[in-house]
């Protein structure tokens, strides 16, 4: 799920510098960095408009629906323990990293996401998964942003480290698919398409791969449609891969990233015949994001208000801005002969 930390967005201007070379301008250093989830002070209006609220409401509703109607293999007690552990870890990390304020929202999103995805017989492992998920945000960081989507890394780490957890991709069925799809699209509207380019790019690539394979095999269209009518895929597409805190900064980077994740997921599922291709692929290709950002630099993103994805200058950049020195090092030759295309691709939203 998207862990939509922190608040404001800052556009990093891009300018041509001699010989048609595109490079990044280093933004001015922020006055007040709030790394790792600290919450800048904002007005009540900003709080109301924070798209994370929609996300929390939607995830909670999905969990309630899953528990009541879809017989998810998770008890209410285990769900409460996971969410509680996520919040507690966020609180402890806030204290350890000396952040000015405890912001429960991102942790709540991660906790709810884990409840929707991770299954285990062991309460201890459920709690451990929540702790790993949240701690990963604070520990696994490069250039001021966490590398992995926390829920993704929490699940993948638990699957690698123990053989006592699992993910049930079939748990959603396809009866409520369209209602679910509407809710996800509603999320896009609420977020005003903030960084939804990664969502569109991913779903387009993945659909092309799934349909392409079926056409090549001569399968009837009902088969790829059935594969795509999957709640787990929706959840991944609209909430996990679209996490603006862990996707590449530039549009070109995000499209490349989405393409890589789609190919990886397809390969795991249809060539290696393993389950959870989406999760494995995202974890693997998330580790390439620093390299993608280095190759295709762009503006660091953070949620401010429902997302124009555009830049709100003047209020200061939090979370990542304090590390923008790294961004300066990230300024590199990108695309010598295509300055206009690059300007478009680097633009936000």
């Amino acid at each position: 799920m998207a862990i939509l930390d922190e608040t404001l967005t800052r556009q990093v201007g891009s300018r041509a510098r001699g010989n048609g070379v595109q490079a990044l301008e280093c933004p001015p250093p922020a006055r007040q960095p709030f790394p790792h989830g600290g919450r800048p002070k904002r007005g009540r209006g900003a709080l109301k408009r924070d798209p994370r609220h929609y996300q929390i409401a939607l995830l909670a509703a999905l969990l309630a629906y899953g528990l009541i109607r879809l017989d998810f293999e998770i008890s209410g007690a285990q769900a409460a323990a996971m969410v509680g552990a996520a919040l507690l870890t966020q609180y402890l990390c806030t204290r350890i990293w000396n952040l000015p304020a405890f912001d429960p929202r991102s942790a709540l999103i991660s906790g709810l996401s884990l409840c929707l995805l991770l299954r285990t017989n062991s309460l201890l492992l459920a709690v451990a998964a929540a702790a790993v998920t949240i701690a990963s945000k604070f520990v696994l960081r490069v250039g001021g942003k966490h590398i992995f989507n926390p829920t993704n890394v929490g699940i993948v780490a638990m699957m690698l480290l123990t053989d006592r957890v699992w993910v049930s991709p079939g748990q959603w069925g396809n009866v409520a698919f369209f209602a679910f799809l509407m809710a996800c699209l509603g999320g896009l509207v609420v977020n005003r398409a903030a960084r939804s380019d990664v969502t569109y790019a991913f779903i387009a690539c993945y659909m092309a791969l799934v349909f392409g394979r079926s056409v090549w095999l001569g399968e009837p269209p009902t088969i790829p449609i059935h594969r795509l009518e999957n709640g787990a895929l929706l959840l991944f597409t609209f909430f996990m891969i679209s996490d603006p805190r862990t996707t590449p900064d530039s549009r070109a980077g995000r499209i490349l990233f989405a393409f890589l994740v789609a190919c990886g997921a397809w390969y795991v599922q249809f060539r290696l015949f393993r389950t959870n291709g989406l999760l494995w692929s995202l974890a693997v290709f998330s580790s390439t994001v620093p390299a993608i950002d280095w190759l295709l630099p762009g503006a660091r993103y953070a949620w401010s208000r429902p997302g124009t994805g555009r830049l709100t200058s003047g209020e200061g950049a939090y979370e990542t801005a304090g590390r923008d020195g790294d961004r300066a090092r990230g300024a590199r030759v990108v695309w010598p002969n295509a300055p206009r295309l690059l300007r478009f691709l680097r633009s936000q939203g």
Partner: peptide, 9 residues
Amino acid sequence: ETTNYRTVK
């Protein structure tokens, strides 16, 4: 369990 269909008890 099945991964491409819901499995319910």
